[in-house]
Design a protein around this nucleic acid. Structure first.
Lengths: 332, 332
DNA sequence: CTGTTAGCGCTTTCAT
DNA sequence: ATGAAAGCGCTAACAG
């Protein structure tokens, strides 16, 4: 049978469509008798209000969309949980879509905001240039999480990547490291900030950086191995390596271990993110914990304000505190 | 400024809304001159057709939704890539949402199909009972991937979990194992099928199963450690352990190693899924590779048929071939 | 408390 | 090739 409409429900219940709509939307101005008749008719016809009709009329969808290059980043999936839980509390449904770093697909998904398929957008790791993110946020409901633009034109929540990298590098130095290398990724701003924090900590200690290697493609386990192999093929070995995330650090540790060297005795290794890989690694990784869930919650709250309060365009950013988690990969 | 509508575009271009709509939808019945005027007006007004209005009129959204308990399962994220790529080829946008195993949230998301927010649904790991999945698939466009119901009332794509577990267990036996234990999860049908394959392989070899331990909560690294600890506290140690997935196997290997035993010499360990963890583990894990991407593609193709061909309700299932990947965790 | 009705923005006949 | 107009299903304003 065809889909039931308000008309059908009204006819079945013996009331008008107005009354049906009122029941649907919980209006108090409905008699108990009418409400019961309508409820019965709805159940009988298995009626559901059609989303597109309701959205068109109300001019909002109660849906938001999150975009990320990749779904299986533990930090992103945790942050998205935070977004989702906060969204649910306000009656919003939150969806997510991976862009695979493909600009065209990202545009297609961003269009869902432009064409009113969703009310708001959460950007985890945009592929488009900062300038476009900011232009978008200027006119539509957009917030950034984790990966945020350099200027404060748009709004974003993240940790202070530079400070976190500074902290963990200082820890490496405190445990006695003097020749520090880094495996990083420059493609993302957070990667560059981490590099900057690393350099600053060295400078503060009067040290100069050892080898700085940067991943070109995926920042994954194999990239960590590959880059570390390069590092180990040098004359003077580093005594500590700071890696831009835990997966790369895991690859790094593995390559060192396979080469017959010991972590941390010969070379200490530090990661970033405190993902499950940090604990799977042998030895377990010293790393930086990000309060990802909380970041997501905060981001949604800000998005909600943007979506509901006319003209509310919050700028700037919120940095949530990170935590240095010390484990065996760097213990003295 | 307010959002532009077809009316605005028509006025600006000096044509009727019908013509604008024709241009928008690539109808050939438009003069070159009109097309140019409309295109110019669209650009000038920065016009985008409102999704809800278009959806209402066309009675479809060109969007599909995928549901999974969890986003960071490598098999699921890979399968979803397959869904997404196939969907994009047909002009569909594919979104995904995690249910966290919460029945209520799952219902809310399924409602997006019922109320026409999306045209189709891909179920990766439903929380609702099989019967409900089948009832849903009976009347709406739904396909299952990875985790499929027991009967063939609905349509699903997966590997033959039972056969795969059988194959890997037979391999364990072939390398000399005689006292085989298993760490499994019974919450999902795939887990029970893997258990069944394990038991069958033992029976075929005239062996009886050793300890069978099953995870209650999350099937993760720590669960693997915890269960293995239990296993090792027994009088007669197993000489091989089959784990329901790679993460649990990684925890298993870690616990064995920490106890001063060797893998595979003292105890061989096999995983399942061939996720990145299989390669991160030391020693690397023997496991079962699932053609997840292909499974996703196939699932979308079937969903597309269901969405577009009236009355096309495909039943049954497709099993794609798995692959036994032999690595050091089980080598003789 | 309830019914009637206009209209959200779009597509699509039906004329011309 | 184009315009006029109906109508998708719903909500909300208005009248009673």
């Amino acid at each position: 049978m065809a889909r039931a409409t308000v008309q059908d429900v009204a006819r079945t219940a013996g009331v008008s469509v107005g009354t049906v709509s009122r029941v649907l939307n919980g209006s108090p101005a409905v008699s108990e008798a009418s409400k019961e008749k309508v409820t019965a008719a709805i159940r009988q016809l298995n009626y559901r209000p059609l989303a597109s009709a309701r959205d068109l009329r109300r001019d909002r969808t109660m849906r938001i969309l999150a975009l990320a290059k990749n779904l299986n980043s533990p930090v992103i999936s945790e942050a998205f949980r935070g977004v989702g839980d906060a969204a649910a509390l306000s009656g919003y449904v939150s969806l997510i879509a991976p862009t695979s770093g493909d600009l065209e697909r990202e545009q297609q998904l961003v269009d869902m905001l432009r064409n009113g398929s969703v009310d708001g957008l959460v950007l985890f790791s945009p592929t488009m240039p900062d300038q476009e993110v900011e232009a978008l946020a200027e006119q539509l409901s957009v917030v950034q999480v984790c990966e945020i633009t350099g200027s404060e034109a748009a709004f974003g929540v993240s940790i202070d990547d530079r400070q976190a990298a500074f902290d963990i590098t200082r820890h490496l130095i405190a445990t006695g490291a003097r020749r520090l290398a880094m495996l990083g990724f420059q493609a993302a701003r957070s990667g560059r900030l981490r590099e900057s924090g690393f350099r600053q900590a060295l400078a503060d200690a009067g040290l100069s950086p050892g080898q700085m290697l940067f991943v070109q493609g995926d920042f994954d386990f194999h990239a960590g191995r590959r880059l570390t192999k390069k590092l180990l093929d040098t004359d003077t070995l580093p005594d500590a390596i700071f890696c831009g995330n835990d997966i790369v650090a895991a690859g790094c540790v593995r390559e060192i271990t396979d080469a017959g060297l010991r972590v941390p005795d010969d070379i200490a290794v530090a990661g970033f993110d405190d993902s499950v890989q940090a604990e799977m690694c042998v030895p377990e990784l010293t790393t930086i914990r990000q309060p990802a869930y909380e970041m997501g919650r905060l981001a949604f709250d800000s998005l909600l304000e943007r979506m509901t309060v006319p003209g509310a365009h919050r700028r700037g950013r919120v940095f949530l505190p990170h935590e240095l988690v010390i484990r065996d990969s760097t213990r003295a």
